[in-house]
Design a protein around this nucleic acid. Structure first.
Lengths: 260, 260
DNA sequence: CGATGACTTGACTGCTGTCAACGTGCGTGG
DNA sequence: CCACGCACGTTGACAGCAGTCAAGTCATCG
């Protein structure tokens, strides 16, 4: 098993990228942490070699030691009920933090698995806690990130609690589009790193339903889909289908037409 | 049979109870905050007069200034989608914190409404943030509470994402029973402060479905229901119905129910 | 090139929502 | 004290959305 080779694949330069230089630092730590602080944060962060697709970053029940930040790639977090069915809690893109739900119990309640080759930063929690005591900006930021996580989970509860299958998938695609856009990628086309089954397990739908909806959306001219590649053709109408007020990032500059 | 009415109008004495004497402090601030620290925390907390049933503690969109801790009574937090349907995010019992989802956006994403006469402690967030910088135990505790909230929301996502109506209501009742028990009340019988409609909006079910399930559970001998009063007759079987591993609190400490 | 896994499509079933009517308890006011 | 209205809850009939089962297609990889 020559997995050792992976260490060579990653260039030394990549490994030594500091938080300050990291292109994600504006996403990972949006505000409140200035350059000096970041240096200190940088010192405690452990950069690991990439995780191959399908590998677990951690499994449900593992002891909690660190928060992880996605640097490249993507992963899903999920719980497995005793029926064997997976509930996917989230798909995590570069710049997003994983493992915040483990602080309270000192153990991870969820499993985290790479959807593609993925690299993460490991942030030992005791160090982070200690450091945030000294850096007001960091503490503030930590609370904000956790608050946002709660808020995001609440929005997912709305989706799971009262949306139709059609609305769920539409909302999912709009949300994904927004997240890609915020990261500097195209909002109108992107590649899904997760399977139809994963999407179903995330949205509380059967994978067949997800598949059927993709073809229906395509037939309706809302998007084009080719395997994992998605191209949104009519974002506005997809927004309507999602049955939610979607803050459209493009529309912010233009005038926002709203219909209540 | 004695003090069944906790939600009786609080006396002036109650209003002046400090955090240290508050019977909830072990729930509100489980560990990591010692007596000296609590005194400081106490100084920043504002005790308001009780909220009548139906009144809002805050509404979605309100500016965020404070976290609230329920002292007596109960309230629900909910979002209203533009279809008018409410998604109830949680029912909050004494000792639980409300408003943690507002930190990130500086505004409350949800509305909070009293289900009965309810009194709360108001904790100005800027003060709390400042204080937690000085008290390691408090900071630790704050992160823990938020982490637990994320974890709880995730469990709700499992319920909404993949449970049947029957499993949802069973899980809801078991969870409520546990929470009452942890607060020193009977785990086997309690009064619901929320309506069937609220339960439906929480579990993603129509209120008719909730009503039907209550009568079905009663016919199956799982429980007895009389309006708002619930008596669990067969907790084990209800656990099975919920389709989840429920850690039963009775099993831990035998019969330590101290009310009635 | 065959095996494997991911995806698509179809047929059918059933759970749960919707609509509707009725019952019940409680507070209000006469 | 009773009558009434209203909110809440229960029950029934029916329909439709989405799950399940099953078969077939397509891409990728050894």
């Amino acid at each position: 098993m020559p997995t050792r080779k992976l260490e060579k694949v990653v260039s030394l330069h990549d490994i030594r990228v500091a938080c300050l230089e990291c292109s994600l630092n504006e996403i990972c730590l949006p505000v409140g942490v200035d350059a000096d602080d970041i240096e200190q944060l940088d010192a405690i962060i452990d950069r690991k070699r990439p995780l191959p697709r399908g590998d677990h970053l951690f499994r449900a029940g593992d002891a909690f030691k660190s928060i992880f930040a996605v640097r490249a790639g993507s992963l899903k977090t999920y719980a497995t009920s005793q029926s064997g069915q997976e509930q996917v809690m989230g798909f995590h893109l570069p710049g997003e933090l994983v493992g915040l739900d483990a602080i309270a119990r000192n153990a991870h309640p969820l499993s985290a698995r790479a959807l593609e080759t993925t690299s993460v930063c490991e942030i030992p929690f005791t160090d982070l806690e200690e450091l945030s005591m000294q850096l007001p900006g960091l503490q503030r930021e930590l609370l904000r990130v956790m608050s946002r996580e709660i808020h995001d989970d609440e929005q997912n509860m709305v989706i799971l609690g009262q949306k139709s299958a059609e609305e769920r998938l539409a909302a999912f695609l709009i949300g994904l589009s927004n997240r890609f856009h915020r990261r500097g990628f195209s909002a109108s086309q992107f590649n899904l790193s997760m399977s139809r089954g994963d999407i179903g397990d995330y949205l509380g739908l059967a994978l067949e339903t997800v598949s059927r909806l993709f073809t229906r959306f395509q037939n309706d001219g809302l998007l084009r889909v080719d395997r994992k590649h998605i191209e949104l053709l009519n974002r506005d109408r997809l927004c309507l289908f999602s049955g939610a007020r979607c803050h459209q990032h493009q529309a912010e500059t233009a005038k926002s037409s709203r219909s209540n």
